[in-house]
Amino acid sequence: MKRLLGVMALGVSMGAALLGSAPAMADTANIAVAANFTKTIEEIGQVFEKQTGHQVKFAFGPTGKLYAQIKNGAPFDAFFGADEKRPLKTAEDGIGIEKSYFVYAQGQIALYSAKYPVAEHALEVLKEAKFNHLAIANPKTAPYGERAEAYLQKVGLYDGVKAKLVNGESIAHAFQYVVTNNAEIGFVALSQLVDPQSPVYQKGQYWIVPQSEYKPINQGAILTQRGANNVAATAFMEFVKTPKAIEIIQRYGYNVQ
């Protein structure tokens, strides 16, 4: 009986949360988001706000910067990183709540070029290495760069292109090198190519590096202690796991587990 009451109470509160447009229930969440996920999460945020009446405000930046800000007391209710390490580290620091952690998206690496036939002959192009510069994200700081470098090593092409590598600070920066023609070819994120607003949308060629060839680029999200009491923040964390949100995430070129 007690349990039934509990379930009913939960049902009522969930119903209220779903109806949610009652202004007294609505809340605002401040969420730190890795820059690569900007457009995707903005679209998810719009749908979320429409459905729940809550508000979400996003702050975008490099994951390491956001982590440093959160560690030093920045008022964020949740943290969507570009990797797993730094969101989990907030839990170690006692700021993030470990049990709220989940992987919300997996990045996919693509080899892009406006000049070389990478769609069909990616490995030959890399092997011949006729280009002057191959752009990747900095392997030391950016997961996309690290995986791209590991992939090159795995297929035995790293030494051949090593002298031609140029490092973008982030995957966005590596992408700029290619878009502005300073590097003729580059490992970028698929999400940068499939976005209809991308400057290279349906221009040039790309080849998606098979997921089996590299360790997944898991992007993790975590709720902070501050966000635990914020209805909008907790609701948003759950919303990102819904089929509607997953559809948006996949459309922007990410995998979802």
Binding site: G64, K65, Y67, A68, K89, K140, T141
Partner: peptide, 11 residues
């Protein structure tokens, strides 16, 4: 300056 940024980014 970039070196410092990289160190900060990689903790």
């Amino acid at each position: 300056s970039i070196d410092i940024f990289d160190h900060v980014e990689s903790l």
